[in-house]
Design a protein around this nucleic acid. Sequence first.
DNA 1: CATATGTCCTGAGAGC
DNA 2: TGCTCTCAGGACATAT
Length: 275
Amino acid sequence: MPELPEVETMRRGVLPIVGRDVSEIVLPPCKLKRISILPSLAAIRKALVGRRVQGVSRLGKRVLVDFAEHSLILQPKMAGLVTLGEVPSREHLRFEMRFRGKQKVSLFYWDRRGLGGVHLLHRDEIQQQVVDGKLGPDALDIEFDEFYRRFQATRRPIKVALLDQKLVAGVGNLYASEILYAARVSPLLASKDVSRKRMRRVYDFMLAILLEAIEKEGSTLSDGTYRNSLNDPGSYQNHHRVYDRAGANCECGRAEIQRIVQAQRSTFYCPRCQK
DNA sequence: CATATGTCCTGAGAGC
DNA sequence: TGCTCTCAGGACATAT
């Protein structure tokens, strides 16, 4: 679930741990299959207990808790949350990092489906292990010329290309449909065949929509999984124009929103507005 | 190399 | 109510 706006909201929500020292790291009782925790819990404890959080950053759809020598990388994938407080359910809590201080503060990793993970890397390993060959520039940082050049290099449909994190990092299935609808570009069009003028619109709406969604603290869908740091839902779902609206009338009033499947993922679009 | 497909895991909702 | 089936925001590994 979490795409760039949701992950950025999580990052902001855990900023209060900056400057605090780790006291202990525990795995909450969880009967479900264990998530990926690497290296071992013991190794993570050894590296981090007593260490001070220097900052919290975001790398694509991952949250990084940065220490002097290491970063703890939390990757929510489809159904994960990074938070300091309330979580939707106790039984899906997967990881807890506690901090020293009078008031008890813990960073929690919660994951309903358990597809995500918690990984510790040395800071100088991140580029090679996480970025190189796997993650392109962040959607909020990339410049248009670079964006256009990258999307000219693939003949996959533009919707599928937008999901490829090595082209641009941060856009996921929901926002890809919303961006293409706003830009009035067909999701079926081969990426390399989208004109520069149209790609400019895709780029402009990518920035506008992601920033707007961050302001609204992301999208909480019908399963209610995603929450902000106060365990409240985001509100961007109220602004969706096509996502999960198959059969509804498009704003144009002359066509229904369609759901199609591309690369095993749902795409929503208006066949009349998006050519 | 570029692209396509299957899979990880749990839970919600639909249909019967 | 309870069963079975399908689907879900991501991204890997593996196959073509």
